[in-house]
């Protein structure tokens, strides 16, 4: 039962275009390594990268691994992106001192939970803590709440990260992703 509800919850209601748009933006930015712990909001983008022979998609056991991995990529001259859910930002905080203190670019694309229309109370603490904790450790934060602005926000963040050698996070709000209601799904 729970599994069925989950797979229904992950199926997109209508196909948004922004995941394909940010795939193009990230390709144009020269992204070669994609580090991720999956979130439903990233599933379409992850599939695009998995189908792309030029990018290496690495599944992490915890998001902080991705921060370290992309620091290594930068030391070796490759650019990467870290895809994660807002809850995963909490797993990264101390590791973010690495790109912050070394002036390394880091592009994080965070799909939000707990910021708008959330049904799961357990997502609230980290969802509300995402921006302040990123800013506290020294990551530049750009939030986007409108689907048509996602691609340009990611493009601006990629430029900021790779041209000024700074860690930058794009937060994609639940207004863009669409808040799901598991209680309704459970009734179906």
């Amino acid at each position: 039962m729970a599994e069925a509800a989950k797979s229904r919850a992950e199926a997109p209601e209508r196909l948004p275009t922004w995941p394909d748009e940010i795939y193009r933006v990230l390709k144009d930015a020269g992204i070669r390594q994609v580090a991720m712990v999956p979130d439903a909001g990233h599933s379409r983008l992850i599939r695009s990268f998995e189908a792309d022979p030029e990018t290496r998609v690495v599944t992490l056991t915890t998001e902080e691994e991705g921060v370290a991995m992309l620091a290594g990529a930068w030391l070796g001259g490759e650019r990467g992106v870290l895809l994660l859910q807002s809850s995963g930002v909490g797993n990264c905080i101390n590791m973010l001192s690495l790109p912050v203190i070394c002036h390394m670019p880091l592009l994080m694309i965070v799909t939000m939970r707990g910021d708008w229309g959330e049904f799961n109370p357990w997502q609230i603490p980290m969802g509300q803590g995402t921006r302040p904790s990123l800013e506290a450790i020294g990551v530049i934060v750009n939030k986007v709440d409108e689907p048509h602005l996602v691609a340009s926000t990611v493009q601006g963040a990629a430029n900021l990260a790779f041209n000024t050698w700074k860690p930058v996070a794009v937060l994609i709000g639940q207004r863009v992703l669409g808040a799901k209601n598991f209680k309704e799904l459970a009734r179906k």
Partner: peptide, 9 residues
């Protein structure tokens, strides 16, 4: 993991 990212790059 820094080693992994570097080795892949």
């Amino acid at each position: 993991m820094i080693g992994l990212g570097l080795a892949l790059a």
